[in-house]
Amino acid sequence: MSEIAFQVEIAADRKTVYEALNTHDGLTGWWTNGVDRKDEILLFDFPMVPEPFQLRRDEATESRVAWTSIGAFPPHWSDTTITWELSDSPELDGGTRMLFHHRGWQDGDPGLPPAAYTWGQLMTRLKEYAETGVPQPLFTL
C-alpha cells in the first residue's frame, strides 16, 4: 500500500490547528467552503465533482485527528485513512508540528500523484489559515 505524507511546522498552538481540522469554520478556512456534517460523517463538496466526499471522523483530540473515507466517490479513496498527528514543534516556540498521512492507496494507483499534489497545496492553506486566521479555501463553490 502507498501513502502520502507531509511534516509541517505551524506557528500556531495545537488548539488552533486542531480547530482548523475539526470545526466547520476551520475546514472551510483552508479546504472547501462546501462542508457539511451528519453526526461523525463529514461531507465535502467541490466544484465540478458529482457527489460529496464522505469521511468518517474516527478520532478528534488535540494530538490526533483521524478520518476514514467511506463514500463511493472518489473510488480510489475508498477505505483510505487520513490522519494528522499534532505535537509541540521543536523548531517554533509555541508552535505545532503536524504529521499528515493519507494511507491505504493501492500501489500504482494513477490517482495518487494528483492527490499528493493537491494535499501539498492544502497543507500550505492549512498552515496559513492556522497562522493568520484568514480563510482562503483551495476550493470554492
Rank of each mutant, 00 (worst) to 15 (best):
G34R: 07
R64T: 10
F139H: 12
F139V: 09
Y18F: 14
T96W: 00
P135S: 12
W119R: 15
R14Y: 01
G94P: 09
M123F: 07
Q121P: 05
G26P: 03
P114T: 11
T140H: 10
G71Y: 09
D58N: 13
G26W: 01
T68V: 05
Q54N: 07
E40R: 15
G108Y: 05
A130H: 08
R37I: 03
G104A: 01
R57M: 15
P113E: 15
E59H: 11
I70L: 05
I41L: 15
P74V: 13
G111D: 15
T28N: 01
L21H: 03
P75C: 06
S87P: 02
D39W: 12
W105R: 06
W67D: 13
W67K: 03
K38S: 04
M98H: 00
R103L: 02
S78C: 08
F73R: 09
D58K: 14
G133W: 12
V17S: 12
L141H: 14
F73W: 13
F46Y: 15
L99V: 08
Q54P: 08
Q136S: 10
L43S: 11
S78A: 07
P74G: 10
D107S: 13
E40M: 09
K127V: 04
D25T: 03
L122E: 09
A66V: 07
M1D: 11
S69H: 14
L122P: 11
P110R: 05
F53C: 10
D79E: 12
H76N: 13
T124D: 12
H102I: 04
E9T: 01
T61K: 10
L138H: 11
G71T: 05
T16K: 04
Y129A: 14
N33F: 02
K38E: 15
P137C: 07
E62H: 05
E51P: 13
P110V: 09
D93M: 06
P135G: 09
H24R: 03
G71D: 07
L126H: 08
P75K: 14
E3M: 10
F100E: 09
Q136R: 08
V134K: 15
Q136D: 11
D45M: 09
A11T: 01
S2N: 15
D13Y: 05
W84F: 12
L21V: 04
Y129V: 08
V17P: 10
P50L: 13
S78H: 03
D25M: 05
T23C: 02
T32A: 01
A115T: 15
S89F: 04
T124P: 05
I10F: 00
